[in-house]
């Protein structure tokens, strides 16, 4: 029984990735490097190329140009040994609906045996909270249970790298919360790098240590949720009442402005408020412009706001 070869260097390295469908450029020089471990979110409006990117990384789709390395291998030439070290959870999977939950988990583990020591079916069902559903047919699972089964099948071979493509699309808040808890449990398992795509900033902030924002065919922002939030909120709006009139001032350095304001007002300033533009504001504006078909303008505005 083999064990996964240790692999040095980044889990994912992408340089100048390009993808063109017909005369439409979906990816226009995407650069990306992800170190092993942790959760990274690829965030972007619908149609920004997230799924295309992840499918290229998964080896499910060819590319028009650029260099790609996933666990040290070009996905276009990945063999079964490489495949065994990846876990894939797609947006919507309805496969093998007639199978029983436990049967499918136990059977799929077989495929990984020449390469690694896969999960025991019962332990895995316990981890994703489907022990009670083990005897049920797959198609009778609820949407949230089905996706948790997909995650179980994704991690069954103890992958070094797990892809989650829009994992909570169509979930109600409860299923969503349960799913987020599951992802947190997965991050406690050692050594698995997780790359997830989402169009939901809130989800990315909750789950990921690092957020990459994809728009206009490339990465336009990259950092921890904190860093991005701070970058987006450099401009602040200061409001106060003076002499009975509302005053508004936009500033890059709110602290300095307020210090000077209060130092000279002789107690006339009341109702002081400092409002920082949030990452959410910046992102929602990006999405709105993107959906209005102004992709280039959207990217410019967003980069202006998060510089």
């Amino acid at each position: 029984m083999g064990h996964p070869r240790p692999h040095d260097g980044p889990a994912i390295a992408v340089a100048d990735l390009r993808m063109r469908y017909g005369d439409k450029d979906v990816l226009t020089g995407l650069d990306l490097e992800i170190e092993p471990g942790g959760v990274t979110a690829l965030l972007g409006p619908n149609g920004a190329g997230k799924t295309t990117t992840i499918e290229i990384l998964e080896g499910f789709r060819g590319r028009s140009g650029g260099r790609v390395s996933v666990l040290g291998v070009d996905p276009a030439h990945g063999d079964e040994r490489w495949r065994a070290r990846l876990g894939v959870v797609l947006q919507e999977w309805r496969d093998n609906g007639k199978w029983k939950v436990r049967d499918i988990v136990a059977h799929f583990a077989e495929y990984y045996k020449p390469y690694t020591d896969p999960w025991n079916a019962d332990d895995l069902l316990d981890l994703v909270g489907l022990t009670a559903q083990g005897g049920q047919r797959v198609r009778t699972l609820s949407g949230g249970q089905r996706r948790r089964l997909d995650v179980a099948l994704g991690i069954i071979g103890r992958p070094a790298l797990l892809f989650l493509d829009e994992p909570t699309t169509g979930f109600d808040p409860h299923a969503r919360r349960e799913f987020h808890e599951l992802i947190h449990r997965l991050t406690d398992l050692d050594g698995t790098t997780i790359l997830l795509t989402t169009h939901d900033l809130d989800e990315a902030e909750k789950l990921a240590e690092r957020i990459l924002i994809l728009a206009g065919g490339r990465i336009i922002a990259d950092g921890s949720p904190d860093q991005l939030a701070r970058a987006a909120s450099t401009t602040a709006e200061v409001k106060w009442i003076q002499d009975g009139r509302l005053q508004i001032h936009a500033t890059e350095d709110a602290t300095d402005f307020v210090r000077k304001l209060l130092a000279t007002d002789d107690g006339a300033v009341t109702d002081l408020e400092v409002h920082r533009a949030s990452l959410e504001d910046a992102y929602l504006e990006l999405v709105a412009q993107f959906e209005a078909g102004e992709a280039a303008a959207a990217v410019d505005t967003f980069q202006e706001a998060t510089r």
Binding site: E58, F60, E80, R81, R83, A84, L86, V88, L90, E92, W93, R94, D95, N96, G97, F108, Y111, Y112, P114, Y115, L153, G157
Partner: peptide
């Protein structure tokens, strides 16, 4: 049918899955 449900893609996502 299996291409519509993703069963085939699932097979493709596993080592030796397509042969199996």
């Amino acid at each position: 049918m299996d291409r519509t449900t993703g069963t085939l893609l699932r097979a493709k996502s596993m080592p030796g899955g397509m042969t199996g």
